[in-house]
């Protein structure tokens, strides 16, 4: 599935005076089958809003989203949400559903208004729990499992409706490093093995390097730039958008390459360390 945004822009009604355009320049990008796009930008740049506009949870005030060259609005609500999976940040719930009950909710677009999930729906839920590797937690309450496991369950919930695109809103942000890696590897696996395209908000430059084919970067009062990871995430541009000097670090070992960016400010005078 191809997802494309043309001239997208947005404003909040109550802030229209101060910020008539949330994004300094209109948003344009095309995402093809199995590609991953990372959205980078400081807090308050409108990253989550952008995800909501792309999927139609909020309406673009200007421009629109196209799916396979047809406007998003020409699809029915059910059609859209069978094809797009939205993964929110993991959060505690007042009533702790079991993981299987949580995941089977993803089948909602396939279940008629008057029906409840059938055996087939539960089987789909188990299958997607297996795909993210937490089938053994099916009967646990979602308030008993760890944040990383809950995040995986939320990804599984979108997989039960066989989506072609996943939209992920900082899925790794409050997890420990090991859980972050599991989430990232799961996302990468879904895109390479199942051809699922992903749009992901992230705060971590090295996650963008690991996952993304291209990057969209935005900040308050800065043009929206979109392009290949290495073209967008350069030291001068990162400094401009994040207001802080980032140093690119490359680690090589035989056939293995790791790229990341770290804030220069975190360095210290040598004689303090030793």
């Amino acid at each position: 599935m191809k997802i494309e945004v043309q001239d997208g822009n947005y404003y909040y009604d109550h802030k229209r005076e101060q910020r008539p355009n949330l994004y300094e320049t209109d948003i344009n990008f095309t995402l093809n089958n199995g590609e991953i796009m990372a959205i980078l930008g400081p807090n308050g740049a409108g990253k989550t809003t952008m995800l909501k506009c792309i999927t139609g949870l909020l309406e673009w005030k200007k421009g629109q989203t196209f799916i396979d060259d047809k406007p998003l609005k020409s699809y029915s609500r059910k059609e859209i949400w069978k094809r797009i999976g939205y993964v929110p940040q993991a959060h505690k719930m007042i009533f702790g559903f079991t993981i299987e009950d949580l995941v089977v909710m993803g089948r909602a677009p396939y279940i008629s208004m008057l029906a409840k999930p059938s055996k087939k729906d539960y089987e789909a839920a188990y299958k997607s729990l297996e795909a993210v590797g937490i089938l053994h937690l099916a009967k646990k309450s979602c308030n008993e499992v760890s944040g990383g496991e809950l995040q995986l369950a939320l990804i599984a919930r979108t997989l039960v409706s066989d989506p072609e695109v996943l939209i992920l809103d900082e899925p790794e942000s409050h997890l420990d490093i090991q859980k972050q890696i599991i989430i990232l590897q799961t996302i990468k696996k879904l895109s390479t093995e199942h051809g699922i395209s992903c749009i992901i908000n992230t705060h971590y430059p090295n996650h963008a390097f690991y996952l993304a084919n291209h990057v969209l970067m935005t900040a308050k009062k800065k043009k929206v730039i979109h392009g290949k990871v290495r073209e967008v995430m350069t030291e001068p541009q990162m400094k401009e958008y994040f207001g802080i000097e980032l140093k690119k670090i490359i680690y090589e070992e035989d056939n293995y390459l790791l790229e990341t960016m770290v804030p220069k400010e975190l360095g210290q005078e040598k004689n303090i360390i030793f």
Binding site: K82, Y86, P88, F97, D101, M105, A108, L114, S161
Partner: peptide
């Protein structure tokens, strides 16, 4: 009749909408 759907209403609005209801 709506008993299962009420589970979906328990979720935050955007999340519930993203389940196509």
């Amino acid at each position: 009749i709506l008993r299962w759907r009420i589970n979906l209403l328990t979720l935050p609005d955007d999340e519930a909408k993203s389940l196509g209801i």
